[in-house]
Design a protein around this nucleic acid. Structure first.
Lengths: 125, 125
DNA sequence: ATGATAGTTCATGATCACGGAACTATTGAA
DNA sequence: TTCAATAGTTCCGTGATCATGAACTATCAT
């Protein structure tokens, strides 16, 4: 009998703080992950959303930070973990913060992500 | 003959990164300082903008981080240091980021700062 | 079962933040 | 001009955090 893998813990929206959101996005790797999730506009497993070739343990750590900050929701699908942004929730609590940051990020590093940002803003999930 | 105190170094706008701005604002003390500078809407010396009774060395450290992130400009006026926000500049480079964060901060922790945020947005300095 | 896959957890070295103590400019007064 | 007060800065030790390799775990395909 194999034990079930423990489920991920996601903070309730009420427990999400502005500081932890900003902290999570202050790291280039994590900001890139969030941008990628935004531009992909669909759930994405960990390795495909991470930039470059980062060690797995490092990736795992970054996803944990994003998860605990309340920015992403992670669910297990077989062997992989599927991550979705919690943009709509966060945007309800901190209006405009995420869109402004993602837009600024896409302005700063090549503007390829930008068109999707507006879409995420508008999505109602 | 006494040596002149070395002047503060401020990054050029071009060297200000989104990541360092977010990093600087991810700390509750620094976010509070920026909020206070915003609500005061005028230059403020270090101790009057800092919350609570923090050790001087800690305050100095936080101001340094804000300065190096490009968020504030510090000038010596006699024995004290006068700090002003670089909101307008930053807002030109990262449109909407600072206002959204300050608004969210004022929503999160008592809303006393909010009325001024809009003003800062509009100011042309 | 076996192997492959996709992540997690653990341990460790490197880096960073906080805060006390000592130091530095500047102002104001004697 | 010397002296004390003021407002920060700099230095440094300690404790916390971060990144990563190694070992481990759950799940899927065969």
């Amino acid at each position: 009998m194999r034990a079930m893998q423990r489920p991920f813990l996601h903070p309730a929206l009420g427990d999400v703080t502005l500081e932890s959101v900003l902290y999570a996005l202050a790291d280039p790797v994590r900001l890139a992950i969030v941008c990628k999730l935004t531009s992909g506009n669909c759930p994405m497993n960990c390795s495909s959303a991470a930039p470059d070739k980062l060690p797995k343990s490092t990736q795992s750590h970054h996803y944990q930070v994003l998860r605990e900050a309340g920015l992403i929701r992670s669910e297990r699908r077989g062997t992989e973990v599927v991550n979705t942004l919690r943009c709509t929730e966060i945007n309800a609590k901190f209006p405009g913060v995420i869109p402004a940051i993602l837009t600024a990020a896409s302005l700063a590093h090549g503007a390829s992500v930008q068109p999707m940002v507006k879409d995420v803003l508008v999505r109602t999930d």
